[in-house]
């Protein structure tokens, strides 16, 4: 693993709540981000992800713990001394300055020579594809363009780390996909250490090297997208990342479990008769037409490239996704099916 760029060590932030008294917005968060890595903080609103990011930026001071950037303790340092670039949700472009002046702001503040400023700003605007926009005012630009200006402004003085706070949530769905690809490409090209905050799990999976899932102020799991999807550590993570079936199974023997009458070859590491919870993703289940089958189709949703089924099996209702089947093979609601679960990807929650 490459060298560590950002390190959070047992960081906590408390707030005084009018009803609940003292509550933790962030609790004992320890994270490290490697140089050049893109780490996403993912979680529902109010989980503390933005507060964590704002503590890294220096807008808020942690009540406990320490934060360091490139080995330097920045816990109580002002934002302007930390060497960070920050991209805000609402872009935060200065409305009284032109695009050029917005991007140049950080360089001007540092007293860089004019020629260097012109060159650097030109370069970075070229990089985000806005070379001709220098004389425009922020309000003349579209949301996506404003976001790119914000990005250019954040990277123009080569900060050590780049921080994003829900940068795409004000854009429409299509633009969001486009922009996240651009952000990822740019990040890789300049190889900058990045922390990215979002509540959108698809966005997180698409853009990140690593994702830290947060719930109620704590990091519940951090790992690659594949880790989180196939080996979630908690029920919360399993439900938050992708769609999932959480099924209660009974251990039959050392190598076998049973779910609603369906037997699976799985090493449960538990004595026979114990109950375990399985994480079964919808696409891991296969349905076979069978008049005597244990399952019954409750609902079918045709989505084109795939078809979603709800299948009643014993006491449970399963989410099943079947992909790219010929029309003739579509199963009608009410018909009976046999249920097969591909056991190699099924994960047992500890």
């Amino acid at each position: 693993m490459a060298s560590v760029s950002i390190r959070l060590d047992g960081v906590s932030k408390r707030f005084d709540h009018t009803v609940k008294g003292e509550v933790y917005a962030v609790r004992q968060v320890s994270l490290s981000v490697a140089t050049g890595e893109l780490l996403t903080l993912l979680g529902p609103s109010g989980c503390g992800k933005s507060t964590t990011l704002r503590m890294i930026a220096g807008f808020e001071e942690p009540d406990e713990g320490a934060i360091s950037i490139d080995g330097r303790d920045v816990t109580h340092m002002l934002p302007n001394q930390r060497g960070i670039g920050f991209v805000f949700q609402n872009y935060a472009l200065f409305p009284h300055l032109s695009i050029f002046e917005n991007v140049a702001y950080g360089l001007r503040v540092q007293g860089k020579p004019a020629a260097e400023i012109v060159r650097a700003v030109g370069e970075v605007l070229e990089l985000v594809g806005l070379a001709k926009y220098e004389r425009q005012q922020p309000h003349q630009l579209s949301g996506g363009e404003q976001q790119r200006v914000a990005l250019a402004r954040a990277v123009v003085f080569h900060p050590k780390v780049l921080l994003f706070d829900e940068p795409l949530s004000n854009l429409d769905a299509k633009l969001r996909v486009e922009m996240r690809e651009q952000i990822r490409a740019l990040q890789k090209r300049i190889g900058i250490t990045t922390v990215y905050v979002t509540h959108d799990q698809e966005e997180a999976m698409a853009i990140s090297d690593r994702i830290a899932v947060m719930e109620r102020g704590e990091v519940v799991q951090d790992g690659t997208a594949e880790d989180l999807y196939y080996r979630p550590r908690t029920e919360f993570v399993a439900r938050f990342i992708g769609r999932t079936n959480l099924l209660t199974a009974r251990v039959v023997s050392a190598g076998e479990v049973e779910v609603e009458g369906v037997r699976l070859a799985l090493a449960a590491r538990k004595p026979a008769g114990e109950r375990v919870t399985l994480v079964v993703r919808p696409e891991m289940i296969a349905l076979l037409p069978d008049a005597q089958g244990a399952g019954r189709i409750v609902q079918r949703t045709f989505l084109g490239e795939k078809t979603d089924y709800q299948v009643a099996l014993g006491g449970a209702v399963l989410q099943v996704t079947a992909g790219g089947e010929p029309i003739a093979r579509l199963l009608a609601p009410g018909s009976r099916v046999a249920v097969r679960i591909a056991s190699e990807n099924v994960h047992i929650l500890s």
Binding site: F59, N80, I84, F86, A92, Y105, V109, Q110
Partner: peptide, 11 residues
């Protein structure tokens, strides 16, 4: 936020 932005730009 604008003032925060300015701060991240080392002002």
């Amino acid at each position: 936020t604008l003032e925060e932005a300015s701060q991240t730009l080392r002002a």
